[in-house]
Design a protein around this nucleic acid. Structure first.
Length: 416
DNA sequence: TGTATAATAT
DNA sequence: CATATTATAC
Protein backbone atom coordinates (compact mmCIF):
# COMPACT_ATOMS: atom_id res chain seq x y z
CA UNK A 1 0.00 0.00 0.00
CA UNK A 2 1.18 3.41 -0.75
CA UNK A 3 1.47 5.91 1.90
CA UNK A 4 -1.09 8.56 2.01
CA UNK A 5 1.26 11.39 2.36
CA UNK A 6 3.03 10.74 -0.87
CA UNK A 7 -0.01 10.64 -2.98
CA UNK A 8 -1.62 13.47 -4.64
CA UNK A 9 -3.64 14.01 -7.65
CA UNK A 10 -4.08 17.20 -9.41
CA UNK A 11 -7.34 18.88 -9.80
CA UNK A 12 -7.38 18.25 -13.46
CA UNK A 13 -6.59 14.65 -13.05
CA UNK A 14 -9.20 14.33 -10.50
CA UNK A 15 -11.83 16.08 -12.42
CA UNK A 16 -11.11 14.24 -15.56
CA UNK A 17 -11.41 11.02 -13.74
CA UNK A 18 -14.17 11.83 -11.45
CA UNK A 19 -16.62 10.43 -13.82
CA UNK A 20 -15.05 7.13 -13.34
CA UNK A 21 -16.22 7.28 -9.82
CA UNK A 22 -13.39 6.15 -7.96
CA UNK A 23 -12.89 5.73 -4.39
CA UNK A 24 -11.45 3.89 -1.64
CA UNK A 25 -13.14 0.63 -1.37
CA UNK A 26 -10.69 -1.75 0.07
CA UNK A 27 -11.80 -4.95 -1.45
CA UNK A 28 -8.68 -6.86 -0.85
CA UNK A 29 -10.01 -8.76 2.07
CA UNK A 30 -13.17 -9.65 0.37
CA UNK A 31 -11.44 -11.49 -2.35
CA UNK A 32 -8.98 -13.54 -0.47
CA UNK A 33 -10.05 -16.56 -2.36
CA UNK A 34 -8.60 -15.10 -5.48
CA UNK A 35 -5.36 -14.38 -3.86
CA UNK A 36 -3.07 -15.82 -6.43
CA UNK A 37 -2.30 -13.62 -9.31
CA UNK A 38 -5.23 -11.72 -8.23
CA UNK A 39 -6.13 -8.74 -10.21
CA UNK A 40 -7.12 -7.14 -7.06
CA UNK A 41 -3.75 -7.56 -5.55
CA UNK A 42 -2.53 -4.39 -6.97
CA UNK A 43 -5.18 -2.33 -5.42
CA UNK A 44 -3.95 0.63 -3.65
CA UNK A 45 -5.21 2.09 -0.53
CA UNK A 46 -7.05 4.69 -2.36
CA UNK A 47 -8.17 6.40 0.71
CA UNK A 48 -4.78 7.90 0.59
CA UNK A 49 -5.80 9.91 -2.36
CA UNK A 50 -8.34 11.68 -0.38
CA UNK A 51 -7.08 11.99 3.11
CA UNK A 52 -3.69 13.37 2.36
CA UNK A 53 -4.47 16.87 1.47
CA UNK A 54 -7.61 18.58 0.64
CA UNK A 55 -6.83 18.91 -2.95
CA UNK A 56 -10.29 18.32 -3.98
CA UNK A 57 -13.42 19.26 -2.33
CA UNK A 58 -16.13 17.13 -3.65
CA UNK A 59 -19.43 18.67 -4.02
CA UNK A 60 -22.49 17.40 -2.41
CA UNK A 61 -25.80 17.77 -3.93
CA UNK A 62 -27.87 20.41 -2.41
CA UNK A 63 -30.10 19.36 0.30
CA UNK A 64 -33.27 18.30 -1.38
CA UNK A 65 -35.36 20.37 0.86
CA UNK A 66 -33.27 23.40 0.36
CA UNK A 67 -33.25 22.86 -3.29
CA UNK A 68 -36.92 22.55 -3.32
CA UNK A 69 -37.18 26.02 -2.04
CA UNK A 70 -35.28 27.30 -4.93
CA UNK A 71 -37.25 27.58 -8.02
CA UNK A 72 -34.03 28.16 -9.82
CA UNK A 73 -30.85 27.69 -7.89
CA UNK A 74 -28.67 28.98 -10.62
CA UNK A 75 -27.22 31.95 -8.95
CA UNK A 76 -26.37 30.02 -5.96
CA UNK A 77 -24.94 27.28 -7.98
CA UNK A 78 -22.62 29.50 -9.81
CA UNK A 79 -21.47 31.21 -6.71
CA UNK A 80 -20.83 27.95 -5.07
CA UNK A 81 -19.00 26.72 -8.03
CA UNK A 82 -16.61 29.56 -8.03
CA UNK A 83 -16.16 29.23 -4.38
CA UNK A 84 -15.34 25.66 -4.86
CA UNK A 85 -12.66 26.46 -7.31
CA UNK A 86 -11.11 28.87 -4.97
CA UNK A 87 -10.99 26.34 -2.29
CA UNK A 88 -9.43 23.87 -4.56
CA UNK A 89 -6.73 26.20 -5.61
CA UNK A 90 -5.80 27.45 -2.24
CA UNK A 91 -6.64 24.37 -0.33
CA UNK A 92 -5.21 24.62 3.04
CA UNK A 93 -3.35 21.57 4.04
CA UNK A 94 -5.76 20.73 6.71
CA UNK A 95 -8.01 17.83 6.38
CA UNK A 96 -11.46 18.28 5.34
CA UNK A 97 -14.58 16.46 6.03
CA UNK A 98 -18.15 16.54 5.21
CA UNK A 99 -20.19 18.14 7.79
CA UNK A 100 -23.57 16.84 8.09
CA UNK A 101 -25.16 19.72 9.67
CA UNK A 102 -24.63 21.75 6.64
CA UNK A 103 -26.98 19.55 4.86
CA UNK A 104 -29.88 20.00 7.08
CA UNK A 105 -29.13 23.59 7.50
CA UNK A 106 -32.30 25.50 7.32
CA UNK A 107 -30.40 28.61 6.56
CA UNK A 108 -32.07 29.54 3.40
CA UNK A 109 -30.45 30.15 0.22
CA UNK A 110 -27.04 31.38 -0.42
CA UNK A 111 -25.60 30.23 2.79
CA UNK A 112 -26.06 26.63 2.11
CA UNK A 113 -23.44 26.39 4.67
CA UNK A 114 -19.94 25.85 3.87
CA UNK A 115 -18.14 25.27 7.01
CA UNK A 116 -14.67 24.43 8.00
CA UNK A 117 -13.52 22.32 10.76
CA UNK A 118 -10.07 21.31 11.50
CA UNK A 119 -8.46 18.81 13.71
CA UNK A 120 -5.39 16.74 13.51
CA UNK A 121 -7.24 13.51 13.86
CA UNK A 122 -6.20 10.82 11.52
CA UNK A 123 -8.39 8.69 9.37
CA UNK A 124 -11.73 10.23 9.57
CA UNK A 125 -10.39 13.60 10.24
CA UNK A 126 -12.43 16.54 9.36
CA UNK A 127 -13.76 17.56 6.12
CA UNK A 128 -15.66 20.34 4.70
CA UNK A 129 -18.99 19.63 3.40
CA UNK A 130 -19.81 21.70 0.53
CA UNK A 131 -23.04 21.72 -1.13
CA UNK A 132 -23.85 22.59 -4.59
CA UNK A 133 -26.26 21.57 -7.15
CA UNK A 134 -24.78 19.33 -9.68
CA UNK A 135 -27.58 19.87 -12.03
CA UNK A 136 -26.85 23.49 -12.02
CA UNK A 137 -28.15 23.94 -15.46
CA UNK A 138 -31.35 22.63 -14.23
CA UNK A 139 -33.26 22.10 -17.29
CA UNK A 140 -35.90 24.64 -17.37
CA UNK A 141 -37.31 22.69 -20.17
CA UNK A 142 -38.25 20.01 -17.79
CA UNK A 143 -38.99 22.25 -14.93
CA UNK A 144 -41.29 24.22 -17.06
CA UNK A 145 -43.33 21.15 -17.51
CA UNK A 146 -44.43 21.79 -14.02
CA UNK A 147 -42.32 18.97 -12.82
CA UNK A 148 -40.03 19.85 -10.10
CA UNK A 149 -36.43 19.38 -10.77
CA UNK A 150 -35.24 16.12 -9.43
CA UNK A 151 -32.83 16.45 -6.66
CA UNK A 152 -29.96 14.15 -7.12
CA UNK A 153 -27.22 13.35 -4.78
CA UNK A 154 -23.82 13.89 -6.13
CA UNK A 155 -21.87 10.98 -4.86
CA UNK A 156 -18.55 12.58 -4.65
CA UNK A 157 -15.48 10.57 -3.87
CA UNK A 158 -15.47 11.72 -0.32
CA UNK A 159 -19.07 10.98 0.15
CA UNK A 160 -18.68 7.60 -1.37
CA UNK A 161 -15.68 6.93 0.74
CA UNK A 162 -17.78 7.45 3.75
CA UNK A 163 -20.36 5.21 2.36
CA UNK A 164 -17.88 2.45 1.78
CA UNK A 165 -16.44 2.93 5.16
CA UNK A 166 -19.83 2.53 6.69
CA UNK A 167 -20.57 -0.53 4.67
CA UNK A 168 -17.36 -2.15 5.67
CA UNK A 169 -17.85 -1.23 9.22
CA UNK A 170 -21.17 -2.93 9.23
CA UNK A 171 -20.06 -5.79 7.13
CA UNK A 172 -21.01 -6.14 3.55
CA UNK A 173 -23.85 -8.46 4.22
CA UNK A 174 -25.12 -6.70 7.24
CA UNK A 175 -25.10 -3.29 5.75
CA UNK A 176 -28.52 -1.88 5.33
CA UNK A 177 -29.38 1.58 4.20
CA UNK A 178 -30.61 2.83 7.50
CA UNK A 179 -27.55 1.79 9.36
CA UNK A 180 -25.26 3.00 6.69
CA UNK A 181 -26.89 6.33 6.83
CA UNK A 182 -26.57 6.36 10.55
CA UNK A 183 -22.88 5.69 10.42
CA UNK A 184 -22.26 8.09 7.66
CA UNK A 185 -24.02 10.75 9.57
CA UNK A 186 -24.82 12.84 6.58
CA UNK A 187 -28.03 14.48 7.45
CA UNK A 188 -28.92 15.53 4.00
CA UNK A 189 -28.98 12.02 2.71
CA UNK A 190 -32.03 9.93 2.88
CA UNK A 191 -32.38 6.25 3.34
CA UNK A 192 -33.43 6.00 -0.24
CA UNK A 193 -30.36 7.74 -1.40
CA UNK A 194 -28.32 5.20 0.40
CA UNK A 195 -30.39 2.35 -0.85
CA UNK A 196 -29.95 3.43 -4.38
CA UNK A 197 -26.28 3.85 -3.99
CA UNK A 198 -26.00 0.58 -2.19
CA UNK A 199 -27.75 -1.09 -5.01
CA UNK A 200 -25.24 0.13 -7.45
CA UNK A 201 -22.43 -0.64 -5.11
CA UNK A 202 -23.51 -4.22 -4.77
CA UNK A 203 -24.08 -4.57 -8.43
CA UNK A 204 -20.64 -3.41 -9.32
CA UNK A 205 -19.14 -5.47 -6.65
CA UNK A 206 -20.91 -8.53 -7.83
CA UNK A 207 -19.62 -8.06 -11.30
CA UNK A 208 -16.18 -7.58 -10.00
CA UNK A 209 -16.29 -10.81 -8.09
CA UNK A 210 -17.63 -12.71 -11.04
CA UNK A 211 -15.08 -11.25 -13.30
CA UNK A 212 -12.23 -11.97 -11.03
CA UNK A 213 -13.41 -15.50 -10.42
CA UNK A 214 -13.53 -16.08 -14.09
CA UNK A 215 -10.12 -14.67 -14.66
CA UNK A 216 -8.70 -16.67 -11.80
CA UNK A 217 -10.20 -19.81 -13.13
CA UNK A 218 -8.70 -19.25 -16.46
CA UNK A 219 -5.38 -18.39 -14.96
CA UNK A 220 -5.17 -21.54 -12.98
CA UNK A 221 -6.24 -23.58 -15.89
CA UNK A 222 -3.66 -22.03 -18.05
CA UNK A 223 -0.95 -22.59 -15.53
CA UNK A 224 -2.03 -26.13 -15.19
CA UNK A 225 -1.74 -26.58 -18.85
CA UNK A 226 1.35 -24.64 -19.64
CA UNK A 227 3.20 -24.68 -16.41
CA UNK A 228 3.83 -21.82 -14.09
CA UNK A 229 6.12 -20.15 -16.49
CA UNK A 230 9.18 -20.31 -14.31
CA UNK A 231 9.25 -24.07 -14.03
CA UNK A 232 8.66 -24.24 -17.66
CA UNK A 233 7.37 -27.78 -17.85
CA UNK A 234 4.90 -27.54 -20.54
CA UNK A 235 2.11 -29.91 -20.59
CA UNK A 236 -0.31 -30.91 -23.15
CA UNK A 237 -0.45 -28.53 -25.99
CA UNK A 238 -3.96 -28.04 -26.96
CA UNK A 239 -4.99 -28.04 -30.56
CA UNK A 240 -5.83 -24.46 -29.97
CA UNK A 241 -2.23 -23.60 -29.98
CA UNK A 242 -0.99 -22.52 -33.27
CA UNK A 243 2.60 -23.63 -33.68
CA UNK A 244 2.97 -21.28 -36.55
CA UNK A 245 2.38 -18.47 -34.23
CA UNK A 246 4.98 -19.73 -31.88
CA UNK A 247 2.84 -19.35 -28.90
CA UNK A 248 4.52 -21.98 -26.71
CA UNK A 249 7.85 -20.30 -27.21
CA UNK A 250 6.60 -16.95 -26.48
CA UNK A 251 6.40 -15.26 -23.21
CA UNK A 252 3.01 -15.85 -21.74
CA UNK A 253 0.66 -12.97 -21.70
CA UNK A 254 1.55 -10.78 -18.77
CA UNK A 255 -1.76 -11.09 -17.15
CA UNK A 256 -0.32 -11.58 -13.77
CA UNK A 257 0.92 -8.10 -13.85
CA UNK A 258 -2.16 -6.55 -15.11
CA UNK A 259 -3.61 -4.19 -12.77
CA UNK A 260 -7.29 -4.46 -12.25
CA UNK A 261 -9.86 -2.78 -14.29
CA UNK A 262 -11.27 0.30 -12.98
CA UNK A 263 -13.65 -0.83 -10.37
CA UNK A 264 -16.57 1.16 -9.37
CA UNK A 265 -16.09 2.34 -5.90
CA UNK A 266 -12.43 2.93 -6.39
CA UNK A 267 -10.72 6.17 -7.05
CA UNK A 268 -8.88 6.86 -10.21
CA UNK A 269 -5.32 5.80 -10.25
CA UNK A 270 -2.32 7.95 -10.44
CA UNK A 271 -0.49 6.84 -13.49
CA UNK A 272 2.77 8.00 -12.17
CA UNK A 273 2.60 5.24 -9.65
CA UNK A 274 1.34 2.61 -11.96
CA UNK A 275 3.41 2.47 -15.04
CA UNK A 276 1.72 -0.18 -17.05
CA UNK A 277 2.94 0.43 -20.49
CA UNK A 278 6.40 1.74 -20.65
CA UNK A 279 6.97 3.87 -23.64
CA UNK A 280 8.75 1.33 -25.64
CA UNK A 281 9.59 1.82 -29.22
CA UNK A 282 7.10 0.29 -31.48
CA UNK A 283 7.31 -2.45 -32.34
CA UNK A 284 9.26 -3.93 -29.47
CA UNK A 285 12.12 -6.28 -29.94
CA UNK A 286 12.00 -9.04 -30.59
CA UNK A 287 8.97 -8.43 -32.66
CA UNK A 288 6.23 -10.88 -32.06
CA UNK A 289 5.31 -13.18 -34.87
CA UNK A 290 2.03 -11.47 -35.04
CA UNK A 291 0.35 -10.38 -37.08
CA UNK A 292 1.13 -12.54 -40.03
CA UNK A 293 3.01 -10.70 -42.67
CA UNK A 294 0.33 -11.50 -45.12
CA UNK A 295 -2.27 -9.34 -43.55
CA UNK A 296 -2.80 -6.15 -45.39
CA UNK A 297 -4.97 -3.57 -43.80
CA UNK A 298 -7.89 -2.40 -45.81
CA UNK A 299 -7.63 1.26 -46.67
CA UNK A 300 -10.07 2.34 -44.09
CA UNK A 301 -8.18 0.53 -41.43
CA UNK A 302 -4.86 1.90 -42.33
CA UNK A 303 -3.30 4.14 -39.74
CA UNK A 304 -3.31 7.02 -42.09
CA UNK A 305 -7.02 6.87 -42.03
CA UNK A 306 -7.24 7.18 -38.31
CA UNK A 307 -4.42 9.53 -37.72
CA UNK A 308 -3.34 12.62 -39.32
CA UNK A 309 -0.44 11.81 -41.59
CA UNK A 310 1.44 14.79 -40.39
CA UNK A 311 1.12 13.83 -36.82
CA UNK A 312 1.49 10.12 -36.55
CA UNK A 313 2.41 10.43 -32.94
CA UNK A 314 -0.40 12.66 -32.08
CA UNK A 315 -1.39 10.81 -29.03
CA UNK A 316 0.20 12.06 -25.93
CA UNK A 317 1.76 9.34 -23.86
CA UNK A 318 0.64 10.97 -20.70
CA UNK A 319 -2.98 10.89 -21.56
CA UNK A 320 -3.37 8.38 -24.28
CA UNK A 321 -1.91 5.52 -26.10
CA UNK A 322 -0.60 5.33 -29.53
CA UNK A 323 -3.02 3.73 -31.81
CA UNK A 324 -1.81 1.51 -34.52
CA UNK A 325 -4.90 0.26 -36.13
CA UNK A 326 -4.71 -3.28 -37.20
CA UNK A 327 -6.84 -5.25 -39.53
CA UNK A 328 -9.67 -6.74 -37.68
CA UNK A 329 -8.93 -10.18 -38.85
CA UNK A 330 -7.88 -11.26 -35.43
CA UNK A 331 -10.50 -12.98 -33.47
CA UNK A 332 -9.07 -14.16 -30.23
CA UNK A 333 -5.95 -13.69 -28.24
CA UNK A 334 -3.94 -15.43 -25.65
CA UNK A 335 -3.82 -19.04 -24.82
CA UNK A 336 -7.03 -20.67 -25.66
CA UNK A 337 -8.66 -22.91 -23.14
CA UNK A 338 -12.29 -23.42 -23.73
CA UNK A 339 -14.01 -23.26 -20.42
CA UNK A 340 -17.07 -25.36 -20.15
CA UNK A 341 -20.27 -23.56 -19.77
CA UNK A 342 -19.26 -20.56 -21.73
CA UNK A 343 -21.84 -19.89 -24.33
CA UNK A 344 -20.14 -19.74 -27.70
CA UNK A 345 -22.28 -16.92 -28.73
CA UNK A 346 -21.13 -14.75 -25.93
CA UNK A 347 -19.62 -11.62 -27.20
CA UNK A 348 -16.68 -9.83 -25.87
CA UNK A 349 -17.29 -6.27 -25.04
CA UNK A 350 -14.59 -3.74 -25.13
CA UNK A 351 -15.14 -1.70 -22.12
CA UNK A 352 -13.22 1.23 -23.29
CA UNK A 353 -15.45 3.87 -21.98
CA UNK A 354 -16.39 4.95 -25.41
CA UNK A 355 -18.93 3.75 -27.80
CA UNK A 356 -17.44 1.32 -30.18
CA UNK A 357 -20.39 1.36 -32.42
CA UNK A 358 -19.81 4.70 -33.96
CA UNK A 359 -16.79 3.81 -35.97
CA UNK A 360 -16.17 7.46 -36.33
CA UNK A 361 -12.60 8.17 -37.31
CA UNK A 362 -11.63 10.66 -34.70
CA UNK A 363 -8.31 12.18 -35.36
CA UNK A 364 -8.25 13.46 -31.89
CA UNK A 365 -9.39 10.36 -30.25
CA UNK A 366 -7.27 9.52 -27.27
CA UNK A 367 -8.41 6.47 -25.45
CA UNK A 368 -6.85 6.34 -22.08
CA UNK A 369 -4.39 3.75 -21.08
CA UNK A 370 -6.76 2.62 -18.50
CA UNK A 371 -9.46 2.01 -21.00
CA UNK A 372 -7.29 0.09 -23.32
CA UNK A 373 -5.63 -1.78 -20.56
CA UNK A 374 -9.00 -2.75 -19.27
CA UNK A 375 -10.12 -3.91 -22.64
CA UNK A 376 -7.00 -5.96 -23.09
CA UNK A 377 -7.53 -7.63 -19.83
CA UNK A 378 -10.97 -8.48 -20.95
CA UNK A 379 -9.65 -10.04 -24.05
CA UNK A 380 -7.03 -12.04 -22.29
CA UNK A 381 -9.29 -13.21 -19.59
CA UNK A 382 -11.75 -14.47 -22.13
CA UNK A 383 -9.72 -15.63 -25.07
CA UNK A 384 -12.40 -17.99 -26.09
CA UNK A 385 -14.63 -15.16 -26.98
CA UNK A 386 -14.41 -13.63 -30.38
CA UNK A 387 -13.90 -9.98 -30.82
CA UNK A 388 -16.78 -8.24 -32.38
CA UNK A 389 -15.54 -7.82 -35.85
CA UNK A 390 -18.13 -5.28 -36.60
CA UNK A 391 -16.58 -2.86 -34.23
CA UNK A 392 -14.00 -0.73 -35.83
CA UNK A 393 -13.74 2.03 -33.40
CA UNK A 394 -10.32 3.38 -32.67
CA UNK A 395 -10.48 2.02 -29.20
CA UNK A 396 -10.62 -1.45 -30.52
CA UNK A 397 -7.83 -0.74 -32.89
CA UNK A 398 -5.76 0.44 -30.03
CA UNK A 399 -6.51 -2.68 -28.14
CA UNK A 400 -5.42 -4.80 -31.02
CA UNK A 401 -2.30 -2.78 -31.44
CA UNK A 402 -1.40 -3.11 -27.86
CA UNK A 403 -2.01 -6.80 -27.90
CA UNK A 404 0.39 -7.04 -30.73
CA UNK A 405 2.88 -4.82 -29.08
CA UNK A 406 2.87 -6.98 -26.03
CA UNK A 407 3.50 -9.99 -28.13
CA UNK A 408 0.27 -11.63 -27.29
CA UNK A 409 -0.49 -14.16 -29.92
CA UNK A 410 -3.55 -14.20 -31.98
CA UNK A 411 -5.50 -17.36 -32.05
CA UNK A 412 -5.96 -18.35 -35.63
CA UNK A 413 -9.50 -18.78 -36.82
CA UNK A 414 -8.68 -22.27 -37.93
CA UNK A 415 -8.45 -23.40 -34.35
CA UNK A 416 -11.83 -22.10 -33.60
C1' DT B 1 -35.28 -3.66 2.46
C1' DG B 2 -34.25 -5.08 -2.01
C1' DT B 3 -35.02 -4.79 -6.83
C1' DA B 4 -36.91 -3.07 -11.14
C1' DT B 5 -37.51 0.65 -13.78
C1' DA B 6 -38.26 5.45 -14.83
C1' DA B 7 -36.00 9.87 -15.10
C1' DT B 8 -32.24 12.39 -16.09
C1' DA B 9 -27.50 13.60 -17.12
C1' DT B 10 -23.48 13.13 -19.95
C1' DC C 1 -28.36 8.13 -29.34
C1' DA C 2 -26.17 5.09 -25.90
C1' DT C 3 -24.87 4.71 -21.52
C1' DA C 4 -24.40 5.76 -16.70
C1' DT C 5 -26.34 7.45 -12.57
C1' DT C 6 -29.83 8.40 -9.39
C1' DA C 7 -34.73 8.59 -8.00
C1' DT C 8 -38.70 6.40 -7.38
C1' DA C 9 -42.09 2.81 -7.66
C1' DC C 10 -43.20 -1.65 -6.17
Amino acid sequence: MLSASSLRISKDEFESQREMEGLGMDVGDHFAEFSEGNLLESFIDFDAFFVGDGDVLPELEMDPEILAEFSAGETMNSSLASLDNQNISDKATNKEEYENKVCSDSGSGSGSGISDSNSGGGGDGEEILKQASNNSKAKKSKASQGKRKVKKVDWTPELHRRFVQAVEQLGVDKAVPSKILEIMGIACLTRHNIASHLQKYRSHRKHLVAREAEAARWRSERRERYGDGGGGKRKVISPWLAPTLGYPQMAPPPIHHFRPLHVWGHPPMDHSFIPIWPNLPHPPSPPPPWPPATTTPPPHLHPSFWHHPKDPNALTPATGTHCFPQPLTATRFGSPPIPAGIPPHAMFKVDSGVSLSTGRPPLDFHPSKESIDAAIEDVLSKPWLPLPLGLKAPALDCVLSELQRQGIPKIPPSSA
